[in-house]
Design a protein around this nucleic acid. Structure first.
Lengths: 138, 138
DNA sequence: ATATTTGCAAAGCCTTTGCAGGGGA
DNA sequence: TCCCCTGCAAAGGCTTTGCAAATAT
């Protein structure tokens, strides 16, 4: 499922709106994550960048990812099963399904899942991370 | 809330039953995690061990924790907010509440939470990790 | 006697940081 | 001009590993 939702100009504008100076590296990585990648790790992003960009350092990858996360354009999280951070272009409230065979991560829309939490009143809920693990047939 | 559920003899038997040779270090750490600690990190376990045990190396801590996890006596997981692994003496199905102020983790019993997942049939669910983040008043 | 386990130190992985050079506003 | 960004290399945090000495069965 290719996403390819945004033109370069739209990416540039998104960066500006987020208060991030739209440098070449940032636009390229943002576009990759928002339009092409599927829950990539920093390593996958570096691999892609080495293939498609002129030259970019590991440090810039990490710096850029942190900038994008802090600006709210993407999200970062890590799963128990993995040592590294995974970046997600979906910044809406949603959950994840991990196919333990392939390692692939699927987004789950909140509407597909009913979570009813009943806790003593002193627990004030701000957010939830739900990761469902299993297998995808077919 | 002190737990202190098991005598040394019981810990030893648990290790044996799990197929783990009950050495001094393993018994001590297992007892600490099962009876005293509250979702400790490896670092906290090391700190405790340095205070209460004769001498134990970092490597033995990690090796022992891995042995205990693999034998099923404890569980390991990591939260998105933290860089390190957290060990849990509760090996039953349950969820977690993270108090973002204090960093403390509370166990949530499955009965307190209703999770209804409706997914296409090709998704075979094996397990779920649910982490609720928020704040605990009082 | 033989197989495990421990301790030490060194290495590993992923990520961050310091600093000098370069590019955009 | 001036500030921010990039790249390099080195360091950082957490965890694992190799190997010899110690321990358990």
């Amino acid at each position: 499922m290719k996403k390819c939702l945004f033109t370069k100009e739209q990416i540039e504008q998104k960066l500006r709106e987020a208060g991030v100076q739209p440098t070449m590296q940032r636009m390229a990585l943002a576009r990759y994550i928002l339009c092409e990648a599927d829950h990539p790790t920093a390593e996958e992003i570096k691999t892609w960048a080495d293939k498609h960009l002129d030259k970019i350092s590991q440090a810039t990858i990490y710096n850029t990812l942190n900038v994008l996360v802090q600006s709210g354009l993407i999200r970062a999280f890590r799963f128990s099963h993995s040592d590294c951070v995974i970046y997600d272009c979906n910044v809406t409230d949603h959950f994840h399904f991990l196919d333990e065979k392939s390692g692939r991560i699927y987004d789950l829309h909140k509407d597909d899942i009913g979570v009813n939490v009943e806790l003593p009143k002193k627990f004030k809920i701000k957010s939830m991370d739900l990761i469902i693990k299993g297998e995808v047939k077919g």
